[in-house]
Design a binder for these strands. Structure first.
Lengths: 180, 180
DNA sequence: CGTAACATGTAACGCGTTACATGATTGG
DNA sequence: CCAATCATGTAACGCGTTACATGTTACG
């Protein structure tokens, strides 16, 4: 069948419960966004493709006058999802602009890398805050929701800590300009 | 100017020393690949664009009969690179198929997530091995080469450890099927 | 003599984001 | 009544990968 990971995100999201495109987007933003995001520009066309492939089924479910289509997973779709889940995952290489900037920071005076590390750390700390807010919701669900959420929190904590340590290392090595 | 991060990778690579497209690719594969990769399909067209923009300069540097063009950074290019380095980095969201599979593993019997965790851990351990081999080379260069390399190693160590802990958690929770 | 490494490029394709367009409904 | 939210889509664009094409040189 050969579907993109994003297609499986959608498949997974409708396998839990019937959802509209709009609701899938909201669910992604609340859960998988931190390791796999998706935009409307992907979701709606993909729902159409999955529907044509018979892996999901669209059902009219208007709310009042407002048109609305929710999708459910078909038996074929569920089989496809399970097959994929049992296949070993690909190692996706990460992209992190901050590390890139640090890598090339040799062309600047060493202290000039400190703001980069600070900015990186700040972003990670903010992310941790947002992830922690999600913990109550995830605790109610299955083991795996909580597991990946904790992965997100732990990863960002490690990263924030690394930034702090590297900042200290730079400042230790730097000439004590302030002591004049 | 508004360049892509990949353009800055190239700019950074030719700022250290004059390099051909081929050598840039090799340098990327040995260093930034783990947080920012680049293919020939990006490098050669991007070198042309950067050259037209006056940020790099191509110099004929044949090796024997074999044609070869090495690129150096211009003053404008160096200014551009430094400006970018001083700007706070964007938070690039990570993509990790393994976490995606885990997230949806609720549709399988819980033990079926164990192979996924094992595969993820194995990949990370292999990566650690390859990164460790690079340590001697990076130690010879500036602080930042070593810094980002250690980030790679530490990150993968954290991830491998997380996989191990999560596997244990699943096996603890699972019914002791083997004890019949 | 053949293979690996050196060297440079392009065309097709796929994935994904952004911006735009449109309209209904709810709540303050 | 106005803003936010619900709801569905598409078109343009950009970035990146893969596969292909072409030729040289070094080495065993």
């Amino acid at each position: 069948m050969e579907l993109s990971p994003t297609a499986y995100v959608i498949l997974g999201m409708v396998s839990a419960e019937a959802r509209s495109g709009y609701e899938i987007k909201a669910a992604v933003d609340n859960t998988t966004r931190f390791f796999w995001a998706a935009s409307y520009g992907q979701i709606y066309p993909e729902l159409k493709r999955l529907s044509e492939a018979g892996l999901v089924e669209g059902i009219d479910a208007p709310r009042g006058e407002r048109k609305r289509t929710v999708y459910t997973i078909t038996e074929d779709g569920e089989a496809e999802l399970k097959d994929w889940l049992r296949l070993p995952p690909e190692t996706s290489e990460m992209r992190e602009e901050g590390l890139l900037k640090l890598f090339f920071s040799g062309v600047l005076p060493p202290e000039d890398a400190v703001p980069t590390l600070r900015a990186m750390r700040k972003q990670r700390l903010e992310l941790i805050g947002r992830l922690r807010e999600m913990e109550p919701q995830a605790t109610g669900k299955d083991v795996f929701s909580l597991m990946v959420l904790q992965a997100g929190i732990e990863f960002n904590e490690w990263f924030a800590d690394w930034c702090e340590r590297m900042e200290a290392r730079l400042l230790d090595a730097a000439p004590a300009e302030r002591s004049s």
